[in-house]
Design a protein around this nucleic acid. Structure first.
Length: 580
RNA sequence: GGUCCCAUCGUCUAACGGUUAGGACACUAGAUUCUCAAUCUAGCAAUACGAGUUCGAUUCUCGUUGGGAUCACCA
């Protein structure tokens, strides 16, 4: 790539691949180094790398990592990525790491790390190596918090500086903006490259002047690529791609006082040291992959295997177009939106697995009792083409299926847990009579065709609250008159009277229903549905309408389980106190 | 604007170059001697457009159109 001569003076002569000759004053280089290494000690590459031995793993084991930044709430897309990483690592006997990319101190949130770690715990996606909620590291390839790895990045950066592949840039924000505007008017590609790279070819004298004035600088990569040449990428998911080479002199070390690296340097250094096997990441990174390839090359690092996958999208409610699920615009981007609503974690995971591999659906149906972890996720089938749209009805369907499939004990437990957190009054009622509660929660859940009307735990109150008198009176009884607005008061009174006259809580279901039919007929309702359909004007309604009056009186709702079952569970006193 | 990616029912997707273009969710209708849910049955519904290669194209090629990503001292 270049030849290096150390002359008997203080100059280093660099002959670049492009044929350009660079003269660099060694004293100047050392001065820049010392500014970079302000608070850290330079570590020779060999010293660093001896701390990261090769992993003793099977040949086809996949080592993955998720690398979120602690700058906001936990994104559902991050959960998706962690899920994929965990599956591929686990299936191959590999390792799944969590690395926190806290290199942007301006945007960092104080609880950023715990938000990420807690969410992963909640989802059963605890990494094999990484950080705990309190920020402590575990695993032998750490630290896993990038700000604790500063000395490494700086050492590699200094290596690049010494080899002529990095240089300081003192340009101000204003100068860069002006550069950008000039590029716009000249209608050329924007960016810091070639002749537009303001400090790429400055003389030593100019650099010295800037340093003497204590001007802060970013350390930039000196790219040797050409936009006209191509680089081949064999993406694990997208296949063979041809992109223009990188020619941008991107920042490697920031000038914001933190001395921290940008993503680009951090990614290459970390994934090299941590022995990441497959860089599974969002396809927004695809355009900068040539840069990462060049950076790795400059650092004499074997190229990585990349797997770029598409992010989850939503339909923009304002524009109507499809776009990436965004932190700022979409509440459902935040995992808390899902968990706070009480969607079951398993339902969320199942839905996400279905997005990743469409054959998951069939497997899930065929193996209802197996844990999700037994599904063999396929890298080949991972949707690589475009970003799937978040389909809430389908997602809720997964959740309904899952909740319906829970055994009674587990179902009760989760309803109780959720109400304890969110509905204290309801929780009090539930706890006041556990036997009654168990009967209530068991309604229409047994057999092979259980009810499937609950997609999230927050629906517990609406679905079961009216079984408890306090809640019934407060929340449900007030709705009765609205629900029964179609019926005249005297009709309702007659229905109530006729029902009570014949109601015997000891009747079995058939007897009970026969009596209901008799009472309906007596009240002027049709029991023969065909007759009713033929001449609806002859009746006040059919049995369904008759039942609706009883149902609404009893529950304040017109969507409930079977009447007879509810009455049996509620008991005669409760029934009589409501149907009157 | 440059660059790259992508294009099958409303949505997620399946289909060695030969299928009646399949499934799931959603939707509609019917059945289930009480509502809703569940369940069952039926139905609606797609290869963006235009060329080319081929006996034959959803599949391969080119173009058009449309969508997405990216072009920060953010990751």
């Amino acid at each position: 790539m270049f030849l290096l001569y150390i002359t008997n003076t203080q100059f280093i002569i660099l002959i670049l691949k492009s044929g350009k000759i660079l003269l660099m004053n060694q004293i100047l280089t050392e001065r820049i180094e010392s500014l970079l290494l302000l608070s850290e000690k330079y570590q020779p590459r060999k010293e660093i790398e001896s701390k990261y031995p090769s992993r003793n793993l099977p040949a086809d084991a996949i080592v993955t990592r998720s690398a979120p930044s602690p700058t906001g709430f936990m994104h559902i897309g991050t959960v998706y990525m962690c899920l994929l990483n965990q599956f591929f690592a686990r299936q191959t006997g590999g390792v799944y790491m969590l690395r926190i990319e806290d290199t942007d101190k301006k945007r960092e949130l104080s609880d950023g790390i715990s938000q990420i770690v807690d969410a992963l715990n909640q989802f059963g996606l605890v990494p094999d190596e990484g950080l705990k909620s309190d920020g402590t590291n575990y695993g032998n390839y750490g630290p896993y918090l990038q700000s604790q790895r500063k000395a490494y990045y700086l050492s590699y950066a200094v290596d690049l500086l010494r080899s002529g592949r990095a240089y300081p840039c003192f340009a101000t924000k204003e100068q860069l903006d002006e550069n950008y505007k000039k590029q716009q008017t000249a209608k050329v590609r924007p960016g810091y490259y070639g002749e537009w790279a303001l400090w790429r070819n400055k003389t030593d004298e100019e650099v010295v002047v800037a340093l003497d004035a204590n001007t802060p600088f970013v350390l930039r990569f000196r790219s040797e690529g050409s936009h006209d040449k191509r680089v081949l990428i064999d993406d694990v998911l997208k296949g063979k791609l041809e992109l223009p080479q990188n020619d941008l002199d991107v920042p490697l070390i920031k000038a914001d006082g933190s001395q921290l690296p940008t993503y680009h340097l951090a990614h290459v250094v970390d994934d090299y040291l941590m022995k990441t096997n497959i860089i599974l990441r969002g396809d927004e990174w695809l355009p900068s992959t040539p840069l990462h390839i060049e950076l790795a090359e400059a650092l004499k690092i074997e190229p990585f295997r990349y797997a770029h996958f598409a992010a989850i999208s939503v339909i923009d409610k304002n524009g109507g177009g499809k776009r990436k699920l965004s932190k700022r615009k979409d509440p459902e981007a935040d995992v808390k939106y899902w968990t706070a609503a009480g969607y079951p974690i398993e339902g969320i995971k199942a839905y996400l697995l279905g997005l990743a591999n469409s054959n998951f659906e069939d497997w899930y149906r065929a193996n209802p009792d197996k844990p999700l972890e037994q599904f063999e996720l396929s890298l080949n089938k991972l949707a690589a083409s475009r970003s799937p749209l978040l389909d809430m009805p389908k997602f809720e369907d997964y959740c309904k299926d899952f909740i319906a499939s829970l055994d009674q004990k587990e179902f009760n437990k989760r309803v109780i847990e959720s109400s304890k957190l969110n509905e204290p009054d309801f929780y009090e009622c539930i706890k006041s009579d556990e036997e009654y509660t168990n009967n209530v929660l068991s309604i229409e859940r047994s057999g092979n065709k259980p009810r499937k009307d609950m997609s999230k735990w927050s629906e517990s109150l609406q679905l079961y609250g009216y079984f408890y008198d306090d809640i019934y009176l407060k929340e449900f009884a007030p709705k009765i008159s609205d629900e029964l607005a179609d019926f005249a008061p005297e009709v309702i009174n007659e229905v109530v009277k006729n029902f009570n006259d014949s109601y015997n809580p000891n009747d079995d279901q058939q007897t009970w229903f026969n009596k209901v039919k008799e009472a309906a007929e007596k009240s002027g309702f049709a029991t023969d549905n065909k007759a009713f359909k033929a001449n609806p004007e002859l009746f006040k309604g059919n049995v369904a309408d008759y039942a609706k009056i009883l149902r609404v009186k009893l529950t304040g709702k017109n969507r409930t389980p079977d009447l007879y079952t509810m009455m049996s569970v509620m008991g005669a006193n409760r029934v009589k106190s409501r149907i009157k």
